[in-house]
Amino acid sequence: MPLLESGVLAADPWRPAAEDEPIGAGDVIVPLARLDEGLARSDPGRLGVLLPPEAEPSALRAALPGLSLIAVTFPIFRDGRAFTQARTLREHLGFTGEIRATGKPLPDQYEFLRRCGVTTVEVPEGTDPAPWAREHARFDVAYQPSILNETREGFALRRIPG
């Protein structure tokens, strides 16, 4: 599926692990249930994991050194648990790898996603990237601290979202 990064379409080196098959080589995203299997893999490729919305991010604590990507999910765009998961991964667990939003987020949520620590967004085939690019550039100011190290706008709580 197409991938957005910094408001534009980007190449996706990752593939999801196929069901009922060995994880295989290369950069692979495994379901949470197969995390141990992925970590035990001898392949030099990178490992990612899919964190379902009901899972505790802290369940990944021990595995973090072996993870390059964590995918969070929006089963529907109104289900905002992934915002808190992403922020928790960055703020409490110090995860510095890629956080990918999957499922059904909307372009109108793009700034929220990025300010909670999401770096890439997986969108359905045929998605028009233009609304995502527009939302990426929409606001010059935000009114609260986020977990990004944003520049202060100079007044009160305001920040300049990157």
Partner: peptide, 15 residues
Amino acid sequence: ILRQWSTLHPEFTFL
């Protein structure tokens, strides 16, 4: 302050 802080809050807009 609470109005500004909660305005388009990235984490709490889809509660």
